[in-house]
């Protein structure tokens, strides 16, 4: 299979959770509180795709698969897509577009403030995830903008921690994965400086 086709397959695969949950919803097989189920699922998948996006660089370096880099964009956009769906479900079928209630939540509920902030931070990345924008911004500035993902990941974890009521195991697991993925960058950067000429090579 060519890398181009693999990338198309990846895009298709990233729609599978959406289709699966849509199907389950129509079959009323999401349990007693389907709205809660789809809000949680969309949030979870946005987080999984965030991890997958961060996993591209370490994998392409580990296995010397430079073409893997082309997976970053579809994964990142899908991550934003599920995040946006997550927000829209909250706004639409949890708060029924009740602006006052939503605004009150954003102000008073830390985990919702953090969730909205996280998605807002993803917006510029999603909007610049096309070749035209890469050219317009220029490689260096584009890369610097997309390093926002290193802030987005911890913010997403805070959103998760602050909405958890008592069982933090899932939050712990996600924190370990984010720590590994971000730790890889720190390690790589540090090694870069000490090993001489590679120092300062941009890391994404």
């Amino acid at each position: 299979m060519s890398w181009k086709r693999a990338r198309l397959l990846l895009m298709a695969l990233s729609l599978v959770p959406l289709l699966w949950y849509g199907q389950q919803l129509l079959d009323n097989r999401l349990g007693a509180n389907p709205i809660e189920a789809v809000i949680r699922a969309s949030g979870r998948w946005s987080l999984y795709l965030l991890l997958a996006t961060l996993a591209v660089t370490p994998l392409l370096r580990l296995f010397h698969l430079k073409p893997l880099g082309s997976f970053r964009r579809p994964l990142g956009v899908a991550c934003f897509g599920y995040g946006l769906l997550h927000l829209l479900l909250y706004v639409g079928v949890d708060q029924f577009f009740d602006g006052a209630a939503i605004w009150k939540d954003i102000l008073k509920r830390p985990f919702i403030t953090m969730g909205v902030a996280t998605l807002l931070l993803m917006l510029p990345l999603a909007l610049t995830s096309n070749n035209a924008m890469v050219r317009q911004l220029g490689g260096r500035r584009w890369k610097r903008l997309h390093r926002l993902i290193y802030l987005i990941a911890p913010m997403a974890l805070l959103h998760l921690y602050w909405l958890t009521k008592a069982d933090y195991r899932f939050a712990y697991q996600m924190t370990v994965l984010v720590a590994l993925l971000l730790g890889y960058r720190v390690l790589h950067l540090a090694r870069g400086h000490f090993v001489g000429n590679q120092g300062g090579k941009s890391v994404t």
Binding site: N33, E36, F96, R109
Partner: peptide, 19 residues
Amino acid sequence: VDHPRWSQAKERRIGEFFK
């Protein structure tokens, strides 16, 4: 009296769409 993390003004009766 709200819960610190969510409002208690409304509830979703299981099986109903609107709150």
